[in-house]
Design a protein around this nucleic acid. Sequence first.
DNA 1: CGATACAAGGTTATCAGACAACCCTACAAG
DNA 2: CTTGTAGGGTTGTCTGATAACCTTGTATCG
Lengths: 236, 236
Amino acid sequence: MSFQQLSRTEHLPKRIAEEIGRGIAGGRFASGDKLPTEHILAQTFGVSRSVVREAIAQLRNEGMVETRQGVGAFVTDPQRRATIRVEQASLADPVSLRNFFQLRLPLEIEAARLAARHRTPTEIAALDEALDGMVKARDWLDEGVKADLAFHRALAAATQNEFYAIFLGYIAEKTSTSINTSFPREMGAEIVKVTIGEHAAIHGAVVAGDAPRAGEAMRQHLINSAARLGITLETS
Amino acid sequence: MSFQQLSRTEHLPKRIAEEIGRGIAGGRFASGDKLPTEHILAQTFGVSRSVVREAIAQLRNEGMVETRQGVGAFVTDPQRRATIRVEQASLADPVSLRNFFQLRLPLEIEAARLAARHRTPTEIAALDEALDGMVKARDWLDEGVKADLAFHRALAAATQNEFYAIFLGYIAEKTSTSINTSFPREMGAEIVKVTIGEHAAIHGAVVAGDAPRAGEAMRQHLINSAARLGITLETS
DNA sequence: CGATACAAGGTTATCAGACAACCCTACAAG
DNA sequence: CTTGTAGGGTTGTCTGATAACCTTGTATCG
């Protein structure tokens, strides 16, 4: 038995921000255009200026508009967004998920290589623990997935490159969530064993400091896990 | 003669958001902790509640906190941020810039390979135009840089993978801005010519549909342009 | 004794109005 | 032609109040 997630008309500013955002994305406001004044927007939407201000603040955070005191709010050049945001919903589409995997592939491979070169005892311990967590996991969909994520995060940390940690952490998280919500599947004991084996191969190469082998093991792991979802990746 | 860019005490809410954000990142607030009430925060920082609210709204947008009406604001699990944001200021440090380049490297290489396989006439035209823009640019620091960005954006688009466009567009933009603001340099005619030549090599391989050669040309280009900044990249 | 209903207090969400800071324009003064 | 100044408009911030909501404790009733 499952209940509907009812949406109880949440967060006025967010809805207005989306409304204005659609106006921008839909081309009703061109790059450089000045938005109506907060006063007029408040009147238009029938809310107070506070709400409009919060909505505009959100758009500003996302880099879609810039405000100048005493002048107004202007639509930013869409190519210079301040943040990267991938909507979870957009990954529900199998083609998009495949594309996302295709993006992740070279990053993870390079991360594995760098990790093999730069790992320290701290990160080796984290990798050990994550692998151990996979082995001991009673329920793969819960504990196993968590350990999987922890493994990839520890690997990203081992590169000693903060940006790999940020980007891969985000990408791995999105991927995992997307799979669990949009493409849930039971993992048989056999498949779990294979998955763990792939991680163990990466682990071994990284600990040994063998960069090429770590990269290759990671490539295989990603291609295989994609294949388990029915996704075929391009390899080069 | 050049003047300092003075910072005119900008945007109260932003500064407070950063302050609270540091508190979270620095571990003063653990995951799940409840932040002080808006009233108390306003008192603490010596500003009005409006400002605090806007600051919290920003943190909520970035996924660092969640608010519940009538209860309070809580620190979100730091591992599931909703967005990726790289502070421009953090790229002023040469080491960080190097790390950022190191992240960009495998992505651009793979993008070049994918572009060679999937480019369509539309994107070839865009690449042509960007290359032409570099050749004709009178001032490299302005028109040249723009054409450079356009080239890399067109390449990302040619992968037919929306995520490469999003991520590489963001990364290339950040890199370019960072170089121009933190490490400005005059580019002699010789260097410009070499740079254009590297792009032409990529262009040629992509148009020819030669994926391995496109990837290799991109690798060389990135390694060389990093070297021109005094940055040495790890290659694998 | 246990479960439900209700009241009280605290917190965020929204509203309303005001003033401050700032920018742009136009016009006057030199 | 350049500089100074006044005016109006817009965003930034402040203050106070009300609504919506959640939590907790207490009272009521079986």
